[in-house]
Simulated assay, not measured.
Amino acid sequence: MASTASEIIAFMVSISGWVLVSSTLPTDYWKVSTIDGTVITTATYWANLWKTCVTDSTGVSNCKDFPSMLALDGLCSMTGCSLYANKITTEFFDPLYVEQKYELGAALFIGWAGASLCIIGGVIFCFSISDNNKPPRMGYAYNGATSVLSSRTKYPGAEGDFKTTNPSKQFDKNAYV
C-alpha cells in the first residue's frame, strides 16, 4: 500500500515537472537585457530558444527568428537550462565580450524547477520499485510436535484404521534400478 502511494506521488511530481518544463519552451524571456537611456531610447532585449527580439519603450517589438535549427541552444531540461545559464553568465562577466550582455530570464528558473521536480519524481519512483522487489517476510506458525500417527499411512480398507508399512515392501524388485 505504501508503495502504491509513493508511486502515485512520484507520478504526480513528475507530471508537474513536465508541465513546468513544457511551459518554458514557448516562454519568451530566457535571457533579458535592458539599455536604459531617456524615456524614448529605453530598449529591452530578450531571447528564447527560437528567436531574439528587442522591444522599445513604446512597446513595439522587432523579432528575428534563428535561421537554422542547428543554431539553437539547449538540449534537455536540466542540462539545457544549465548550459544556457552558463553561457549567459560567462558572457556577462567576461570583460572582453563587447556584444549585448544579458541576464538570466524567468524561463530558466521555471525550467530548473520543472527539471528538479522530474528528477525528484524519478527518484521516488525508483525507491518505490526497490521496495516492491524485496521478498515478503514469511511468518512461520508452530504446529506443535508431530505424533507417531503422522508417520503412518492410512489403510485403504477401513476408515480410521492405521497400519504401519515397511518401506522395503512398498516397492517392487525393480524400484531401485
Rank of each mutant, 00 (worst) to 15 (best):
M1R: 10
S3I: 09
T4W: 07
A5T: 15
E7C: 07
I8V: 14
A10V: 02
M12V: 13
S14C: 08
I15S: 13
G17A: 00
W18L: 14
W18M: 15
L20V: 05
S23P: 01
T24W: 04
L25C: 02
L25R: 05
V32K: 11
S33A: 12
I35V: 13
D36M: 13
G37I: 07
G37W: 02
T38L: 09
T41W: 03
T42W: 06
T44E: 12
T44D: 03
Y45G: 03
W46R: 02
N48S: 12
L49T: 14
T52Y: 04
T52W: 05
G59F: 01
V60R: 09
S61A: 12
N62P: 02
D65T: 08
F66T: 04
P67V: 10
P67C: 03
S68I: 11
M69S: 14
M69T: 11
L70S: 13
L70P: 01
D73E: 12
L75M: 12
L75D: 12
L75C: 10
C76R: 14
C76S: 14
S77T: 13
T79A: 11
T79Y: 04
G80E: 03
S82T: 15
L83P: 00
A85W: 06
A85N: 07
K87E: 09
K87F: 02
I88T: 11
T89V: 08
F92S: 01
F93K: 04
D94A: 02
D94N: 07
P95C: 02
P95E: 05
Y97N: 06
E99W: 03
E99F: 04
Q100E: 05
Y102W: 01
E103S: 12
E103L: 12
G105M: 01
G105N: 03
A106Q: 07
A106S: 10
A107W: 07
L108P: 02
L108G: 03
F109D: 04
I110E: 10
G111I: 02
W112Q: 01
G114L: 01
G114R: 00
G114T: 00
A115H: 05
A115P: 03
A115L: 06
A115M: 07
L117R: 00
G122P: 00
F125T: 08
C126D: 13
S128A: 15
D131I: 10
N132I: 05
K134G: 05
P135I: 02
P135Q: 06
P135M: 04
R137N: 11
R137L: 14
M138P: 11
M138Q: 15
G139Y: 15
Y142P: 06
A145W: 08
L149V: 08
T153M: 10
Y155I: 10
Y155K: 13
G157K: 14
G157N: 13
A158L: 14
A158M: 10
G160L: 02
D161I: 11
T164L: 09
Q170P: 01
Q170C: 05
D172L: 08
D172H: 09
N174V: 03
